[in-house]
């Protein structure tokens, strides 16, 4: 027995948590880091996908081209990522897609020793960020699409009538108004993303869930690690929800009827 046991309430081995505290902190940093990166990237991807799904034009030829090149691919993309389990997407990404692009012998993007090192050291991070971003983008595109469509047509008609281009109308008139309405669903999505990041532990990403599993394996104790990370996730989601409420309060003013 190297360290004295610390018992809380007669059964909770606090010393285990104490011993592995650095691992939990590392896991927390990874969870927060991956979540933040994926929220930002997923939002950008979601915006592009949402706009692609709304792409339209006056001329029949251009309209057909936009349908075939933008609308349909985006629709299929969103349908796939919303219609399959995220867990399966992560496995597919880690064991099939990423090796296709990054692989020592014949990676499409990277090959040789760099590829080997990248896969060894950062394989799970790459998988996690790519898979969560692609998945979040699909869900967020639906939020953007609904948000943009919820803005009265008169708004874009007024902007276009002044001579603003489609892009200027989106940027200065439609998106700022849509964004306010999108904040609550975007917040929910961010919370879902935070929790879903635990799935990436399955391919070895050292985040919170991975830390808990490591500790559980070492001590064959389960209450301590899993209760600990549960509380940590809970605190994080509460903080996120609070942040979203703050944003809503700040951007809510001046909204129309």
């Amino acid at each position: 027995m190297d360290a004295p046991q610390i018992l809380w309430f007669g059964w909770f081995r606090a010393d285990i948590i104490q011993e592995y505290a650095p691992l939990f902190w590392e896991g927390l940093r990874m969870t927060v880091g991956v979540t933040v990166v994926c929220i930002v990237q997923g939002t950008l991807l979601g915006l592009l996908l949402g706009l692609a799904r709304l792409a339209d034009a006056r001329q029949p030829a251009t309209r057909l081209a936009l349908r075939v090149l933008l609308r349909w691919p985006a629709t299929i993309y969103v349908s796939f990522f919303r219609g399959t389990p995220l867990f399966v997407q992560i496995l597919l990404m880690h064991f099939a897609v990423v090796p296709l692009f990054v692989n020592p012998t014949d990676g499409w993007l990277l090959a040789g020793d760099t590829a080997r090192e990248l896969r060894q050291n950062y394989g799970a991070v790459i998988t996690g960020i790519v898979a969560l971003t692609l998945n979040a983008g699909a869900y967020i595109s639906e939020i953007f699409r609904a948000g943009i469509q919820s803005i009265d047509r008169g708004q874009s008609e007024a902007a276009r009538s002044l001579g603003l281009s489609y892009a200027q109308t989106m940027r200065h008139v439609v998106l700022p108004q849509a964004f306010r309405r999108m904040l609550p669903p975007l917040g929910n999505n961010a919370i879902a993303l935070l929790k879903d990041s635990s799935l990436v532990s399955a391919v070895g990403l050292a985040e919170l869930a991975y830390a808990a599993r490591t500790v559980a394996g070492a001590y064959s104790r389960y209450w301590e690690p899993y209760l600990t990370i549960s509380l940590m996730y809970w605190m994080l989601t509460l903080a996120l929800a609070w942040g979203v409420r703050r944003l809503e309060a700040r951007y809510g003013r001046g909204d129309s009827r």
Partner: peptide, 18 residues
Amino acid sequence: RRDVGMVFQRFNLFPHKT
């Protein structure tokens, strides 16, 4: 359109701008 102003039945002012 820059040279053709339009006024709508429902005003369509931008509600997020003063």
